[in-house]
Design a protein around this nucleic acid. Structure first.
Length: 888
RNA sequence: GGGCGAUUAGCUCAGCGGUAGAGCGCAUCCUUCACACGGAUGAGGUCACUGGUUCGAGACCAGUAUCGCCCACCA
């Protein structure tokens, strides 16, 4: 036990649970005791999860909180089940985001990245990381995350960097990484390329400009339609469909490109859609992905007309220096003046925007590094198809496969400074390209030392794609890698399936020749109350830390996990926080009750179990079984719901109430001890079941129970006890039904709560009779009776009495002078009509020979039984009604 | 242009082949020694629509509508 944490302190018996008083205490206790840490242990089966590394620049948001809660629940669950459990945390260097953050800071200081220079700048980023990078991991601790902080990793730490280097060099030598001039997505604001999935397509209102290009040496002309007239400056052809009769005679002819006075050919290509626009497309190979492809097919020149700022460059003639949107206006004006502009139609189309800064992306031909995807995608597709890797829920299989099957090469070079530098050097003397794990000193070809490293860094996702094994020591064959790879399950949001999950799968297959995880548990997004994504620009974000401070981490966790189904988005409703907090408080108070009555508890054999004891133990056993099963199936919401129901509706509402007479009777030693013992067992076991969901609350309570052991989190997961007792469950149901019926009459007849009434019950069935006879005391207490009298038969039924008719049982509350007879008559009539409806439906069903012939025999028998019950009940009700009417 | 998800009580969501459920909200009552962040009782649903499969369908199939989200090179 740690010096500054006193866990022997007696439970503060406050009526309301105050999470803020206990959460910090327990977290540092767990961490100091080393409960989160795992060593390799070949004797035990492993369970491992790698945490999706949040950006170092980030602050915890509700998405992280949900993601973390799920992983922590699974981790705590498996740890208690006895697995050698590792939840490996870490953060991501997040190239663009981090660089931008530090650049912002530099601007405030009146300097800039360029002024500082590359080396100094990177130093500054590391300083920044040292200072602020721990925020998000501290926040994860607030959530209760039981990850192994001793193994915390960072995508740019030494080990991960070594993995990145290894992976790059290996892929390079296999020919799976190449450099070349291709069309890429350029962000003019971030000044870097971004990959295809980092481009967000947004529908925008724009125009379709129709331009007339004159045919050389002819009076004819060709009208093309374009949404981006300024790119005409880089046109190197116009394409028409090969079978388009309108233009067949023009194919092979030459056009004069207006404004530029350049000659460009008319070519034929299948790509052209005859229906769209005029059926003639201007081709700008350097600035459009399709045009680029067409350009390759027809060997067209590529004329880049934009620079890195998306301003027109020297190839744009007099437009040089204009921003692309200014250039558009200028070009359109000039085209209009030249009589080339035929018309402008409004036209909505998708514009690519930078996922980060929302600038319009410029497709551009540029020399970049790419990962060749086809060979890597193949095994990554197979493992999902043959089930070696499964998405939970499985509908995400299709989404993943659809993407993987249509994947294009991955542009991995970024024009940033913060990130993993591309391990390629160019010889300034002979032009040789050297890719190596060790920094080369001389050129292997010409042996000079004039080498220059490629200035670019790698896409952040390249390093996170190696995360499941780079964090375990790869490329070294470490014991950790051996025990914990493949990891057991990956938990992440559906928004990064392509960015991250897919990359881990194909990189895992390539380097480990094994899936990185057999299961991927995909959860939805946390939306605001209106169902919108939470975002900075909308200002609708909720800070999980504020929620934790107000309601407690347990409440936040439970709320985020329950109330929806796996894979679906969750709307954030503050009212649900209150409801969940009330649940925490309910558990707290139920435990208070148990603890208050456990002061003199000593272990020892129980006396005879009462019905309620057998019932709650049976219900507890069934809860252990179902909770375990649903958790094994990753259905955490359902398991949470089961716990909620058991704790509140069964343990609190019924069992606790039923133990009171025994607990408050200090004379009945054995009976009291028995109740104590059962209460204790059910509560303690339930706390263990609940611990993964509500680690702090359960620890606080558990530490106050007369238990040996350092922490609930290190206890074993409950086995299903052999307490199942169908008889007890059905007898208890009968008793509860009777009590509820009496309560109902009292409420309906407006009998004041203080008013004790005589209760008479007609119970001909011997078994039922015995059950209710034994339950007399409970009925008195829970239904507010002055006396309970049971009859096997009743010659004369009480006249002025309200009644309830259950199946086989009639209950009478003589309320002479207290009741409104008309009201009671009306009540009975209503019940009879409801019963008649039920009877009618059942009879219809049973008269249907299709049903009786084809439905399973037990279903038919059950329906018959039901009908008999209803009939008998109806007879009793009618009888009762008749008697009452006679008395009016 | 494809794909996915949602459509069930006023609200938020479970249920996924055998007579509709929870939480919140609402109504009435209750400050009894676990809890008013509570207890008791109750009201409230032709399970979006149309067909089909089945003895039987919120539940399975086909389609329609509305909303949301992904993906996509029609300039």
């Amino acid at each position: 036990m740690s010096d500054n944490i006193d866990t022997t302190e007696k439970l503060e018996m406050a009526k309301t649970y105050d999470s803020s008083l206990v959460e910090g205490k327990w977290y540092s206790y767990w961490e100091k005791k080393g409960f989160f840490h795992t060593e390799v242990n070949k004797e035990k089966q492993a369970f491992s999860i790698v945490m999706p590394p949040p950006n170092v620049t980030g602050a915890l948001h509700l998405g992280h909180a949900m993601d973390g809660a799920i992983q922590d629940i699974l981790t705590r669950f498996k740890r208690m089940q006895g697995y050698n459990t590792l939840w490996l945390p870490g953060t991501d260097h997040a190239g663009i985001a981090t660089q931008a953050k530090v650049e912002e800071q530099l601007v405030k200081e009146g300097t800039s990245r360029k002024e500082l220079g590359r080396e100094k700048f990177i130093e500054r980023v590391w300083e920044w990381k040292a200072q602020y990078g721990g925020r998000i991991t501290q926040q994860l601790r607030r959530l209760g995350a039981s990850c192994d902080w001793e193994r915390e990793r960072f995508t740019m730490d030494e080990g991960c960097s070594k993995s990145v280097r290894e992976a790059f060099v290996d892929l390079y030598h296999k020919g799976l990484i190449y450099r070349g001039n291709y069309i890429i997505n350029w962000c003019p604001k971030c000044h870097t390329t971004i990959s295809d999935i980092e481009v967000e397509h947004v529908d925008r209102e724009g125009n379709l400009y129709h331009l007339r290009y004159p045919v050389k040496d002819s009076k004819e002309s060709l009208i093309v339609a374009t949404t981006r007239p300024e790119t005409m400056l880089g046109d190197t052809a116009v394409a028409v469909h090969p079978d388009d009769e309108r233009y067949a005679h023009l194919i092979g002819k030459t056009l004069i490109l207006p404004l530029m006075d350049r000659e460009i050919p008319i070519i034929a290509d299948d790509y052209v859609d005859r229906e769209f626009g005029t059926g003639a497309v201007k081709i700008t190979p350097a600035h459009d992905p399709n045009d680029f492809e067409i350009g390759l097919r027809h060997h067209l020149p590529q004329i880049v007309v934009l620079d890195k700022e998306a301003k027109m460059n020297e190839n744009a003639g007099k437009y040089q220096g204009l921003d692309r949107f200014e250039a558009r206006k200028a070009v359109v004006d000039d085209l209009k003046a030249a009589g080339v502009l035929v018309k402008i139609d409004p036209h909505a189309h998708a514009v690519g925007e930078c996922y980060r800064c929302a600038s319009v992306i410029e497709p551009m031909v540029s020399k970049q590094w790419f990962v060749k995807m086809e060979p890597l995608a193949k095994p990554a597709i197979e493992v999902v198809k043959d089930g070696r890797l499964q998405f939970v829920p499985d509908r995400f299989d299709k989404i993943y496969l659809g993407w993987m099957e249509n994947i294009r090469d991955w542009c991995i070079s970024r024009q940033l400074w913060w990130g993993h530098r591309i391990p390629v050097w160019y010889c300034e003397e002979c032009g040789a390209e050297i890719c190596s794990k060790e920094d080369p000193l001389t050129c292997p070809t010409c042996h000079t030392s004039h080498l220059m490293q490629d200035p670019d860094v790698l896409d952040t996702w390249f390093s996170s794609g190696l995360w499941p094994f780079s964090t375990l020591g790869w490329p070294e064959k470490t014991p950790e890698l051996k025990q914990f790879y493949p990891t057991s399950v990956l938990v992440t949001g559906r928004d990064i399936i392509f960015f991250w999950v897919a990359r881990m799968i194909f990189l895992g297959m390539e380097f480990m020749n094994e899936v990185p995880f057999p299961k991927v548990m995909i959860h939805g997004l946390v939306l605001d109350a209106q169902g919108r994504k939470m975002s900075k620009s909308l200002g609708n974000g909720i800070d999980p830390i504020e929620v934790i401070e107000q309601y407690g981490a347990d409440t936040l966790r439970f709320m985020l996990i329950t109330g929806n189904t796996p894979g679906n988005d969750l709307r954030f409703h503050p009212e649900r926080l209150e409801a969940t907090r009330n649940f925490s408080n309910k558990i707290w108070n139920a435990s208070r009750y148990v603890l208050m009555n456990l002061e003199d508890y000593e272990e020892g054999p129980r006396g005879e179990l009462e019905l309620a004891d057998r019932w709650i133990l049976s219900r507890y056993a069934s809860t252990v079984e179902k909770v375990t099963e649903t958790m094994e199936n990753y259905d955490l919401g359902e398991a949470g719901r089961l716990l909620f129901e058991f704790i509140w509706n069964e343990f609190c509402d019924w069992y606790i109430e039923l133990t009171k007479p025994r607990l408050y009777d200090k004379e009945a030693l054995l009976a009291r001890h028995t109740a104590q013992s059962v209460l204790f067992e059910a509560l303690e076991g339930t706390l263990r079941l609940l611990h993964p969901y509500m680690p702090f609350l359960t620890e606080e309570i558990w530490q106050n129970l007369p238990m040996q052991g350092e922490s609930i989190m290190m206890q074993t997961w409950p086995e299903v006890p052999a307490y199942q007792d169908a008889v007890a469950e059905s007898n208890m149901t009968l008793l509860m039904e009777a009590i509820k019926a009496i309560r109902n009459i009292r409420a309906e007849m407006k009998v004041s709560p203080g008013q004790k009434v005589e209760i008479m019950m007609l119970v001909p069935d011997k078994v039922q009779h015995a059950v209710l006879e034994n339950g007399k005391a409970d009925i008195l207490k829970l239904a507010g009776g002055a006396s309970v009298e049971l009859f096997e038969e009743m010659v004369e039924k009480p006249a002025q009495a309200a009644s309830a008719v259950l199946e086989g049982i009639e209950i009478y509350l003589p309320l002479k002078g207290l009741m409104d007879l008309d009201k009671e008559i009306a009540r009975l009539e209503k019940e009879i009509s409801v019963a008649s409806l039920d009877q009618e439906k059942l009879e219809q069903k049973l008269n249907n020979s299709g049903f009786t012939n084809k439905a399973p025999a037990d279903v038919v028998a059950k329906e018959r039984e039901k009908l008999e019950g209803i009939k008998a009940r109806k007879v009793a009700l009618a009888e009762r009604l008749r008697e009452l009417k006679e008395n009016v």
